[in-house]
């Protein structure tokens, strides 16, 4: 239960960073930290004590394997997280070229 609580604290730290920071790069970093805590939580749920990695050895096939279903979900999610972060970085580059600053309060003050 301690590990689940620490994983949730990592999520809450990311949430705190998204809400209170004013620099755009720090908002992107905090979003990335929230995603990592979700991946860790999924991998924690599927673990079995004394299990081995889910690769079947053809010579000795009867063992207890760790749950492969959350691992398949997280595999997809990691690559989608990369796509989302790279698109966020592209938007941040354009905002910097236009307004010459990373601060979100100055960006909302300037009009057109």
């Amino acid at each position: 239960m301690t590990v689940y609580l620490l994983c949730f604290i990592l999520f809450l730290i990311g949430l705190y960073g998204v809400i209170t920071r004013r620099n755009l790069i720090k908002i992107a970093i905090s979003l990335s930290i929230m995603e990592f805590s979700c991946f860790l939580f999924f991998a924690l749920i599927g673990y079995i004590d004394g299990g081995i990695a889910p690769i079947v050895d053809p010579a000795d096939p009867l063992k207890t394997y760790v749950d492969p279903l959350p691992q398949a979900l997280v595999l997809t999610a990691i690559v989608i997280g990369l796509a989302t972060t790279s698109m966020l970085m592209a938007v941040i580059i354009r905002i910097y070229r236009r307004y010459k600053t990373f601060d979100i309060r100055e960006i909302s003050n300037l009009r057109g």
């Binding site: 760790v66 595999l75 990691i78």
Partner: peptide
């Protein structure tokens, strides 16, 4: 953490994806 939780697929994908993410972020900064 993924290696300790017996998930080698996830460890390989996470290490290369993290490297690419760091390259893009450092290029922006």
């Amino acid at each position: 953490c993924f290696l300790l939780l017996k998930a080698p697929d996830l460890a390989i994908v996470q290490i290369v994806v993290e490297t690419i993410t760091l390259i893009i972020m450092v290029a922006v900064v």
